[in-house]
Structure formats: C-alpha cells, structure tokens
Amino acid sequence: MKSGDSFVMKDNPNICLIARSHKMSKSRGNVVNPDDVVSEYGADSLRLYEMFMGPLRDSKTWNTSGIEGVHRFLGRTWRLIVGSPLSDGTFKDGTLVTDEDPTLEQLRSLHKCIAKVTEEIEATRFNTGISAMMEFLNVAYKWKKHPRLIIEAFVLLLSPYAPHMAEELWFRLGHSKSLAYEPFPKADPAFLKESTIVLPVQINGKTRGTIQVEETCSEENAFQLASRDGKLSKYLNGKVIKKRIFVPGKILNVILDLQNVKATVR
C-alpha cells in the first residue's frame, strides 16, 4: 500500500517496506515469458504494452496489471467499430460504420491524431503515439455515428502497433487485401488549425480587449460577443454606434458617435 512517499503494509501502516525492481533473471525467478503474455492477452497487447511502458530509451519496470490498460484500449477499439458481443460472445459480421460524410469535428479529431501518431513514430516516441490514439478513441465514443472514412484511417494508424487486430478490422471493413501496403493517412493542415481564434476589438481605433470566436464568425456575431464581454461591454452598452469595421478573422473596430455620447451625459 502506498502512503506518502513510501510503501507500507496494508495490515499495519506503521511498517515501511522497501520497493525495488531487478533485472529479469532465472535465479531471481522474476522472468516474464512473452509466450504467456501472448496467450493471455494476445500479441498486439504485448506489442502495445512494451511501447506504452515509457520512452523507448528509458529503463522501465514490468507490471502485468499495466498490460490490462492497453488490452482494454484494444477491446474498446474493437467494440467501437464492430459493436458489442452477441449473447454467445461472438460478434456480428462486418462493422457499425456508416457511409455518410464525416463532420468537421470528426475530421479535426482524426487529423490531429494522424499528425501526432506520424510525428511520434518518426521521432521514436512510440508511447505518446499510443496516448494520441487513446484520446481519439475517447472522443470517438461520444459520436453517434462513425463514418467509414474516419474509421478506416484510424485502423491504418493503429496497424503498425497492433497489426493483427488492424488486419482483422480491415477485412471486416470490406477490404480483401492486407493493409500493410495501404498508404499511411496524411494529416491535412486545414483540419489541424485551431477552430477558434482570438479577435482583437477596438473602440474608436484603440484596442480595448479581445474575444474568442469561431474563425468563420460573422460581423454581427462578433459584435454581439463583444457587447457581452465583461471588459468591452462598458464601452459599448448604451452607446450610439456610428460605424463598424470588421475584417473576418483579424479585427473588429467599433466607431462610436461621440456627439451623441456627450449629449447623453448632459
């Protein structure tokens, strides 16, 4: 049991233990055999876990319960695409994917994941590539529909790490040839841009604050947001607007009718 910085006995927390790990050797009896891991969790789980344990170059401690984490990830991936098992434990043929066009949000999640996985493998940071796929999966579970285009790309992303399951999914997606020579998905920079931008707002030519807007936001929307903004509202509320200058994605400048302002004060 962990208590503060040290480990203690569960029955008596006053007794400190020493925790240490050793190189695997026959004489210590702490050798974990890959065969056993493969038969219990599958080859893909072993591959994934070896990579997920930490940076390739670091020394790491084996933890059999840790492999359950990546095993679960593979199971969730499978069920997302194939569906829940039937009552007899088998799965229906084919997949749950739909043939409609993906939404912008789905494309953004996918391309973020493509960019990250590619970059991380090329830099031999295999562990963070897995994290990116796990993030994607969490987001994908929130979607109601899973377009083929998105799911097929994700299966290809997964294939270098977990080739066995990826091949199986690839066939269920209706392909008849191995995915080993399919082109690896490429990240489209258009979908990598942050979806919102920070828009500066000027009052009579002086920058008084900023608002967070969708990149494609209209002039009216930007103005409404500025009017509700805590900092900007005091400049705008109850004022007569002479003119609005709006450059989409760049700036909003509001020119007030100063004459009328004075009149109001009087």
């Binding site: 050793h22 702490n30 401690t61 933890n63």
Partner: peptide, 15 residues
C-alpha cells in the same frame, strides 16, 4: 543508433 532501455522485473516489496 538507438539504445532501448531495460525492462526490469515486477516491483518487489520487501518487509
């Protein structure tokens, strides 16, 4: 050249 790290055995707790 990349040196992969060592995988150490499961943590042992010594009382």
């Amino acid at each position: 050249v990349i040196n992969q790290g060592i995988i150490l055995g499961e943590v042992q707790y010594i009382a």
